[in-house]
Design a protein around this nucleic acid. Structure first.
Length: 262
DNA sequence: ACAAAGTGCTCTGATCTACC
DNA sequence: GGTAGATCAGAGCACTTTGT
């Protein structure tokens, strides 16, 4: 039996256990329905991006899909129970750390907030890359904010509430302005961040993100974020899951897997 | 004259559409 | 859910053109 047939049988087994039809799976994977039938029978080879998509839909590491001897780790009962919602993540979801959110925001604003290109949209993306880069590198939360996929890129859903609090406490100031004829919302810090609240590796990741991305304008950083695997594997309006950073590809990946293995 | 690069044709395999 | 036939893309090859 060739490898594609083995993978196909595994796909079929997992799909049937979840009670999902080929049609539903095909729509999730944005493929024609017969493609699912052919993949399952081994008549069609599966592309890398399709493999990643499948691993995301069923929350199974790619390794498990490619290893025929291994029992797949899938939360079938949860899938059936919560129709239309995703099963829980394999690795625990980082808990939100609101204080950390404030400190990171103050740190960003103090460092790059005065640059003309740094408006609200760019800040969203900087927070996203800080959170996801840190999670990829250390498998731990930094802020642990919840990012939704919307038209313009990842958006932290806690942002408005936290910013509102910070404005009330006069920790930051909201300024409406224009950037090349586009309306821009800027935030200016009135406090300094408490650096004792940060670990060295947290500062390192934040600085790295700011060095790499803080020169970009809103549309550049949005375009850039649209090539990241966590973004690509999430449907519009859904929460972008942290676990997907482990399937990142260059230039987005920040973790050196080769070093760890050898 | 010869080698390297470019062009176009054919074949093969992968994928999709349409149908059962 | 399965599959025959149509369609398309890419690889391989022969032939032509260009440069030395």
């Amino acid at each position: 039996m060739n490898i594609y047939k083995k993978i196909g049988l595994r796909f079929k087994e997992l799909r049937e256990k979840t009670g999902m039809s080929q049609d539903v799976l095909a729509r999730k994977m944005k493929l024609p329905r017969p493609a699912i039938s052919q993949i399952e029978s081994g008549a069609r080879k599966i592309a890398t991006d399709e493999l990643l998509m499948f691993s995301q839909i069923f929350h199974i590491p790619v390794d498990d899909l490619l290893n025929p001897g291994k029992e797949p780790e899938v939360r079938l009962h949860e899938w059936k129970k919560e129709k239309g919602t995703k099963p829980r993540m394999r690795i625990s979801v980082p808990q939100k750390n609101l204080k950390k959110f404030k400190e990171v925001l103050l740190y960003i604003l103090n460092k790059v907030g005065s640059k003309p290109n740094i408006g609200e949209t760019v800040i969203y993306k900087l927070l996203y890359f800080i959170d996801f880069d840190f999670y990829e590198k250390y498998e731990e939360q930094l802020i642990g904010a919840t990012y939704m996929k919307n038209q313009y890129g990842p958006t932290p859903i806690e942002f408005d509430k936290i910013v509102e609090q910070m404005i009330k406490k006069e920790e930051i100031e909201k300024v409406k302005s224009d950037y090349f004829n586009y309306p821009q919302t800027k935030y200016l810090p009135r406090n300094k961040p408490d650096l004792t609240k940060f670990k060295a590796n947290e500062i390192e990741v934040i600085d790295d993100v700011l060095n790499r991305l803080s020169e970009m304008n809103a549309s550049q950083i949005s375009d850039y974020s649209h090539g990241d695997v966590p973004w690509l594997t999430t449907s519009e309006g859904e929460v972008i899951e942290y676990e997907s950073v482990f399937y990142r590809t260059p230039p987005y990946s920040v973790r050196s897997y080769a070093e760890e293995n050898g």
